[in-house]
Simulated assay, not measured.
Amino acid sequence: MKVKIAISEPPEVIDPLITDLAACIAKSKRVLVITGAGISCSGGIPDFRSSDGLYDLVKKKHPDIVLRGKELFDAMLFRDEKQIKCFYTFMAELKRLISSAAPTPTHAFIQKLKQNGQLLRCYTQNIDCLEESIDLPVIQLHGSMNKVKCTLCPATYKFTTRMENQFRRGVAPPCPQCTIVDCERIRQGKRSLATGTLRPDVVLYNEEHPNGDIIGQMQTSDLKKKPDLMIVMGTSLKIPALKKFIKQASRMIHATKTGRVIFVNRTQATKEWEKVFDYEVLGDTDHWVKIIEKKMADEKTMAAAVTRLKRSISSVSDEDDKENTIASGTKKTVTLNVSSSKQTTLKGFRVTKSAATTKRTKTA
């Protein structure tokens, strides 16, 4: 069964669904969390796909350059000197916003999962590092805006205000390590080498993650630990590598029969994810966290809901075992055809339950 929820109706309307959803979280022991830009918006950082204000500011500084939002995060821009200047200006303005931003209720919710011993791992696409101020460890899939790195050598440095001001002018500071090495070579009478420049330590489109192999090993390790819940929040699900991991984790979770996968985002997922998510919550992640935490604080209701959920899962498992026993003791073939769905639409609030209809074909 898949449940789709759009958060806007009164509590009494969504209460049964929220109760079940909260019970799934309460009973979980090994939770994977995947986050995107949507969880940081309320903290003061705009979603890159809708942050017209930030793009407009960059366009005013570089009116002769036309770059779409995605192109500002594409490594191909380093082929054009003018686009490079535009990139650095954008990164400086983004750093300014990040410096004054704060963790959101969604960040705090993930931290509570960690404190409760439920969090297996949190993977984030975000580069804002808001998790650091609340001591929430995450795997940064797209790098960090707290550091800069050299374009030639392995050196990395803290992203300072001085560097931010240089970037804002479209200037890339020279790498101190490369400069030291070059000066030493010249002192020794050797030929001068190219000096790298500094750039934010973020992973752009069309470039490999420097820690990609390590992240891949961690993902494999996490799947072997058999997570029983995955929460995907604030992401539009556009990055191929992350999509692959979410689907792999989903198959592992669903193989347990008791595991669930939750998607929370302002816009709905495409049909590609129809069999991946058990719960699809359409709305702001902070709003969702607030109503979930309120429900989980009601210990009596939660205890009853968790018990009911376990009985429901046990009942389904018993039915499956019964079907398997019958099938193994006869020469009949049973074909299940999942096709129909029933949708109820309320004002601003949708609940979709996919119901399996069975068509049985008997053969001798």
Score class of each variant (00 low, 15 high):
residue 211 N to Y: 11
residue 70 K to P: 01
residue 271 K to R: 10
residue 202 V to R: 05
residue 280 E to W: 00
residue 41 C to Y: 02
residue 315 S to E: 13
residue 195 T to S: 09
residue 63 P to F: 02
residue 52 D to S: 12
residue 131 E to F: 11
residue 128 D to N: 04
residue 156 T to L: 02
residue 237 L to W: 04
residue 240 P to Q: 13
residue 347 K to C: 05
residue 71 E to R: 02
residue 356 A to G: 12
residue 323 E to D: 15
residue 162 R to Y: 09
residue 340 S to G: 13
residue 295 K to P: 01
residue 219 Q to R: 13
residue 25 I to F: 03
residue 117 G to K: 00
residue 344 T to E: 14
residue 192 S to V: 06
residue 349 F to V: 15
residue 351 V to D: 07
residue 196 G to I: 03
residue 14 I to M: 09
residue 287 H to Q: 10
residue 337 N to T: 14
residue 334 V to L: 13
residue 338 V to H: 10
residue 134 I to C: 10
residue 32 L to Q: 02
residue 352 T to L: 09
residue 319 E to P: 00
residue 10 P to N: 11
residue 144 S to R: 10
residue 253 I to W: 03
residue 352 T to N: 05
residue 67 L to K: 04
residue 136 L to M: 13
residue 299 E to M: 07
residue 234 G to Y: 00
residue 247 K to D: 03
residue 193 L to T: 13
residue 6 A to N: 06
residue 9 E to I: 12
residue 106 T to V: 04
residue 108 A to K: 08
residue 324 N to T: 14
residue 315 S to L: 11
residue 208 E to Q: 11
residue 330 T to A: 05
residue 281 V to L: 08
residue 233 M to L: 10
residue 48 F to H: 10
residue 295 K to M: 14
residue 348 G to L: 03
residue 258 T to C: 04
residue 174 P to L: 09
residue 66 V to Y: 11
residue 145 M to W: 08
residue 197 T to W: 04
residue 227 P to C: 09
residue 190 K to F: 15
residue 13 V to S: 10
residue 194 A to R: 09
residue 285 T to L: 00
residue 169 R to N: 09
residue 176 P to R: 04
residue 184 E to L: 15
residue 159 F to C: 10
residue 8 S to I: 00
residue 173 P to W: 05
residue 364 A to C: 11
residue 302 M to H: 07
residue 137 P to H: 08
residue 46 P to G: 12
residue 218 M to T: 08
residue 88 Y to I: 05
residue 351 V to C: 07
residue 73 F to D: 01
residue 155 A to P: 05
residue 116 N to V: 01
residue 137 P to N: 10
residue 76 M to F: 07
residue 283 G to V: 03
